[in-house]
């Protein structure tokens, strides 16, 4: 049913790498990331924008890629969870805090929780618990009961303020 002639050419910089892609109308950004770019760290959970497992950053703002139409993004700067690591392959401070604090169990919700924390801490370096809850509320976690996620965000805030505690 899909006709390549209807496809739209998009230019995206994904995790720093430029891609020119033919994307079909009707495809979500999630589908294109997973199926055309093989970036499977972004996950499908609900396809209605409720769970947050598909979260990415589009032009510096977090977005749910399952409800973003790929063809409506002719040019975009996109960051996925695979793009959070440092160039030396090390975890970023926010990732490190989530690891240290066992922020996740199964980790399927990681894209939403990590990007929500990153966006929150960029704007609010010293968040209250209510601000952390509000920032994480766009994503669902079924494993942790959110306690370890909150603690991870607090630890990440400390790490970003004081990168060398020693």
């Amino acid at each position: 049913m899909d006709d390549l002639a209807q496809s739209v050419l998009v230019q995206w910089r994904v995790n720093g790498v430029l891609h020119e892609l033919d994307v079909l109308p009707g495809l979500s950004l999630l589908d294109v990331l997973r199926e055309q770019l093989n970036l499977t760290g972004t996950h499908m959970g609900c396809m209605t924008g409720h769970c947050g497992a598909c979260t990415v950053m589009i032009d510096g703002r977090i977005a749910k890629s399952c409800i973003a139409q790929a063809a409506t993004l002719p040019r975009a700067e996109i960051r996925t969870i695979e793009g959070l690591m440092g160039p030396d392959g090390r975890l970023s401070p926010v990732q490190q805090a989530f690891w240290d604090e066992a922020g996740f169990q199964c980790g399927y919700c990681a894209p939403g929780m990590l990007f929500s924390a990153i966006e929150l801490l960029a704007e609010t370096p010293d968040p209250t618990d209510a601000e952390i809850d509000s920032a994480l509320a766009g994503s669902l976690c079924r494993c942790t009961g959110y306690q370890s996620l909150r603690r991870a965000v607090r630890a990440a805030a400390r790490a970003l303020k004081d990168p060398n505690p020693d």
Binding site: L84, W99, F104
Partner: peptide
């Protein structure tokens, strides 16, 4: 002890592979 291992690190790096991947 509250030990962490690589098993807990993979999803944080976006490196865990689930069935649909």
């Amino acid at each position: 002890r509250a030990v962490r291992t690589l098993e807990g690190r993979a999803p944080i790096a976006g490196a865990a592979r689930y069935s649909s991947d």
